[in-house]
Amino acid sequence: MSNPQAVTDHLMVELRDVNKWYGEFHVLKNINLQVKQGEKIVICGPSGSGKSTMIRCINRLEEHQKGDIIVNDVPLTEDLKNIELVRKDVGMVFQHFNLFPHLTVLENCVLAPIWVKKLPRKEAEKQAMELLERVKIPDQALKYPGQLSGGQQQRVAIARSLCMNPDVMLFDEPTSALDPEMIKEVLDVMVELAHEGMTMLCVTHEMGFAKTVADRVIFMDGGQIVEENEPHEFFENPQHERTQLFLSQILQH
């Protein structure tokens, strides 16, 4: 595959028999997933299939009721200490960016490093500027999120997550809220990140992205993992009829 840096054997994220209910509704059914350090996973599936819920469980934005989730050797339980530890290691990028509108781009980026990692401001700002350079918007640092385009905002959101030096990055449909001409600039940043060896879990329907960087593609439907394979096999030779149907629908265009 195309990632230069080797995948190590260290298990970064592990889900064992994870089950989740919203009230009476069974949203995640016996999810088992192992993600090694450096692996890039793309998760796709129809809306309501539970893919967003699954990755939101990994940094405990959602609570699961049964099973184990272990991130970087830390088990996610009710223990607030563990939740804090996990969130320090896991970065997340949202569909609607969720930048803080009352803070400048730079302030968005340095807030968590200063108050969570307790970095001196100068150092945090230096690091933030480097990362903003990496996502190619250092000149916007002093603007407010409202002044940027959607694509720029999403790149700031990526830089903001990277400022915490995460070991794993979660992407929750990062390009779905973007205009077509902006999708590429965000995907370029994500591809670059993948090439640098970041462990990534992406919920996305960008099949081109899946083909270029993914080590595995996971298809979810009805709250469970229906099929899991390396991208070539997944697209050329889907095993399950639900997968075939889904792929035929999204690849039509």
Binding site: N19, W21, G23, E24, H26, K29, N30, Q65, K66, G222, G223, Q224, I225, V226, E227, E228, N229, Q239, H240
Partner: peptide, 17 residues
């Protein structure tokens, strides 16, 4: 890899009611 379809289970009794 293809998985078997999972059954829908009732929520654990300590989370509803």
């Amino acid at each position: 890899m293809k998985y078997d379809l999972q059954p829908t289970l009732p929520a654990p009794s300590n989370t509803i009611g």
